[in-house]
Design a protein around this nucleic acid. Sequence first.
DNA 1: GTTAGTCAAGACTAAAATGGTCGGAGATCT
DNA 2: AGATCTCCGACCATTTTAGTCTTGACTAAC
Lengths: 157, 157
Amino acid sequence: MLKLSKKADYALMALQYMGSVQFSDLTRARVVNTKEIAEENNIPVELLAKVLQALAKQEIIESHNGPKGGYILGHEPRDITIAKVLEAIEGPLGIADCYHENDHSPCEQLEHCNIRTPLLKVQESIYQLLSSMTIEDMMSGQPLIIVESRKTEGVNS
Amino acid sequence: MLKLSKKADYALMALQYMGSVQFSDLTRARVVNTKEIAEENNIPVELLAKVLQALAKQEIIESHNGPKGGYILGHEPRDITIAKVLEAIEGPLGIADCYHENDHSPCEQLEHCNIRTPLLKVQESIYQLLSSMTIEDMMSGQPLIIVESRKTEGVNS
DNA sequence: GTTAGTCAAGACTAAAATGGTCGGAGATCT
DNA sequence: AGATCTCCGACCATTTTAGTCTTGACTAAC
């Protein structure tokens, strides 16, 4: 239960990777492209592309077009919370559905709904939890082999 | 994101209702059947039936067959944690999929996966949160109009 | 200016999960 | 024993998700 979608996973992986590449000792502010991230993390390229698009639209990352283009983080890793990332990909948190509901899907139960209030508490706690953790936390303690310049290798074997 | 399924919602509603019926002043240990719960909470009967089945199989509730049969809670409301209920309905908690994975779906990312460890921490926190809350917490402070004996009313208008 | 590499955006397919429905098995009462 | 009321378990339809493909627009290098 409460599974994250693959897209969400991929988003976090990508951001973690970008953070590591950008903020490691040697190569600062290097732009990484979709293909590189996908290959390094064994993620289907096209799907990752869509994920990165969404992140770019939310200005979590910045896109740079053209040859030698790609993406860079839009903020410092410590300023990118997990909550923000997940929201960008999967929409707002909704343990209790009734909270963000439009006119349709009237939630016929609302009148007698005794579980709503407690669930909202749970939801609030989870949100706080996800907001307290950032991409930086995912980078820490990870050696990670830096791939310095593999922009145009013929690695498709 | 992190939405609960309708079934999970229904499970919690049903348990809350059963708890209220059983542990209110007047009528103790009354057996309630699927139809009553469904009508009282505006839940599709057949779907609720499946939910209650699952709960019964996990021994969260006890089933009693035959006329005047139905369900009663298998434990005190304070001993039924939300975590247990959700697990019964939606399977084990799996923010990070890779945690409970069989041989198939090998998670190609595992080798370089830097998000796994942090996510497990999040998951653990959430689990603790859900384990700390019980059906009793959902009953507290709820007046709730007790429906004393409506087993066989013709209420299907 | 041309070319090649990159992101952007959408339609499309396939598979899985979810929501919802059906007829049957077991138990109780008359 | 029969009728009725209940739970049980397999079944189908719809939605969501994962993944693919195609087309287009933008940018930098040559």
